[in-house]
């Protein structure tokens, strides 16, 4: 855990330095340029949110080092009510003037964020938009439509518009629906691609394993499994391996996790040929963009969509971050 200790120490030192700088410059004209940025994100409960937390701390480390007059406070919450409470603390106790928030739920967090904005906090919302867009100054998100469209186009192209597909879905959420609708919209243009069935596997390896086992029992001829998430793809691969099935030619995950990108890079599994990026790194981009804009006193564009890209053997290197936990 020495790396962890080092990280903490560095964060503490960095924080102390920033505070000292702010104190030293107190009263002078420069003090107005100090930015106190609050970051509110979900706690690391699975691979993807683990990546979010890691990238947020990475941004804090780098930016505080680069800008001594910047102080970033990262808070993780395990549910919408807890996040709302933390938001209040950030505004009243930490006295932040800028906020980057990845809301748990759009509806539940809209009011608390609107309150913060009313108190003069500059608000950047990440990934899940608020129900009332006037409560945010800027919105930065990954491209969920592309997350469904890109795999569908890839499958249609690879199999020349003729394949039997089974699909896994995440959890019943608007995010999942967007992806699913984009996927099926492409497939509708290819009448010879049959989607045999789709079931929820909760973005979870174990559930993906079980659902795939049952799909394999039920369908004797499958060409592609759209696992729709790299964690789920992991469970899918194990189930296929156990059943010793050779009819399946491709398993398509999603999000571009470290291990999946490495597999593509090394070509170590013939079933894994491509992936679609939806990196938790967007929280890093959001914090960086917000902090730098605020330091210059500028505003961000109202909406910024971080594009999703098809990851193949040729470009996999650009998507490989060996230090990230995801």
């Amino acid at each position: 855990m020495s790396a962890f200790a080092k990280l903490t120490r560095r964060a503490v030192l960095g924080g102390g330095l920033a505070a000292a700088t702010a104190l030293g410059l107190g009263g002078s004209a420069l003090a107005a340029d100090a930015v106190k940025l609050g970051v509110s994100i979900p706690a690391a409960t699975h691979g993807f949110t683990g990546g979010i937390v890691w990238w947020a701390n990475e941004a804090k480390k780098e930016l505080e080092k680069a800008h001594p007059n910047l102080k970033i406070t990262v808070k993780t919450a395990s549910g919408a009510p807890e996040q709302a409470n933390q938001l209040q603390d950030l505004v009243t106790v930490t006295k932040i003037d800028s906020l980057v928030i990845f809301p748990f739920e759009s509806a539940a967090l809209t009011q608390p964020v609107a309150q913060a904005k009313k108190k003069g906090v500059y608000v950047t919302v990440v990934d899940r938009g608020l129900t009332d867009p006037s409560a945010q100054d800027a919105y930065i998100a990954g491209d969920n439509t592309a997350f469904g469209r890109i795999p569908a186009e890839h499958i249609a192209k690879t199999f020349n518009g003729k394949a039997n597909v089974v699909a896994l879905r995440g959890m019943p959420t608007t995010l999942d629906n967007e992806r699913w609708d984009a996927f099926t919209a492409v497939m509708k243009q290819h009448p010879d691609i049959k989607i045999l069935d789709a079931k929820y596997a909760n973005w979870n390896r174990d559930d993906a394993f079980k659902v795939t086992q049952d799909f394999l029992t039920r369908f004797k001829d499958i060409d592609v499994v759209w696992a729709a998430d790299d964690d789920m793809a992991f469970g899918v691969l194990k189930a296929i391996e156990q059943a010793k099935r050779t009819d399946i030619k491709e398993v398509f995950g999603g999000a571009g996790s470290k291990t999946m990108v490495k597999t593509i890079l090394d070509g170590s599994n013939p079933l894994i040929r491509a992936d679609v990026s939806y990196s938790p790194k967007f929280i890093y981009d959001a914090i960086k963009m917000t902090a730098e804009a605020r330091l210059k006193g500028q505003a961000l564009p109202a909406t910024h969509i971080i594009p999703s890209a098809l990851i193949t053997k040729e470009n996999a290197k650009e998507f490989y971050f060996p230090d990230s936990p995801y």
Partner: peptide, 12 residues
């Protein structure tokens, strides 16, 4: 041995 891994969703 089933998945050879443990993650925060294990045993949920």
């Amino acid at each position: 041995p089933r998945l050879g891994s443990a993650s925060p969703t294990t045993g949920l």
